[in-house]
Amino acid sequence: MEQIIFNIIEALKFGFIQRALIVGSLIAVCCGCLGVFLVLRRLSLIGEGLAHFSFATIGFGLVLNVYPLYVAIPLTIIFSLLLFYMAEKANLYGDTAIGLISSLGIAIGVMLASLSGGFNVDLFSYLFGDILAISKFEALTATILSVIIILIVILFYHDLFVITFDEEFAHVLGVKPKLMTKLLLVLTSITVVIGIKVVGTMLISSLIISPSVTALQIAKGFKTAILISTIIGVFSVISGIILSYMLDLPAGASIVILNFCFFIIAFSLKKR
């Protein structure tokens, strides 16, 4: 046991571990709070769709030889708004549409990436995350963006709450439901893209959905749901990173599996 604690303390001295823990935790906070709104509004699949689409945009960045996240963030935001208008005009929020777009996103990503010079380790890291390899610049960008997202959620908390509870009624409370939904989608798009480094495009939606679903099993209020979801997300990221470092496991996959374990625990607690 002492040896384990010693190893953890030793690990914490490394810059790359510190960066991974800070960035991972901040992204987990973003995912944790946005997740509660998305899950309760039955929009969890949107996260999945956006993540898979962002993979295509990363492929695009690789082809253009531009830093992929620069391309991915604006394109994913535009795409999320496009999804919103499609839902309004053609009622296409359905799982079928998202399923269609998700696989197309991955296919385009793979196609573009192979055009840019074939498969390499880089592509794998975008699919499944590589938080321990995060650079100082990436860490700084992700930190700034996460802090902005968290601040926006805090500032618009009440508006987001009322559109989640009853979108139509929000109008009578002087809140603009469409504008708030767009804000939620834009924030989710940015979170999904910066979260790619942590768990990858294939697994990011899990970091959005799992902690919030776990929190919803046990929460006794809306604010508490967000708080619990955030804490679970952060805890899963920190323990996932440490576990992966010590046992030489992939961090992204460890985080997702840990999250599922937390869900099982919360679910059985609720049953009692």
Binding site: F156, D159, V162, F165, L173, G174, A219, G221, K223, T224
Partner: peptide, 21 residues
């Protein structure tokens, strides 16, 4: 839905609020 009665009633006061509410 995980909101308390208190949270729901308080949301009725948002009509009086300006940003940041």
């Amino acid at each position: 839905f995980p909101a308390t009665v208190q949270e729901i009633i308080a949301s009725g006061l948002l009509t009086q609020k300006k940003f940041p509410k």
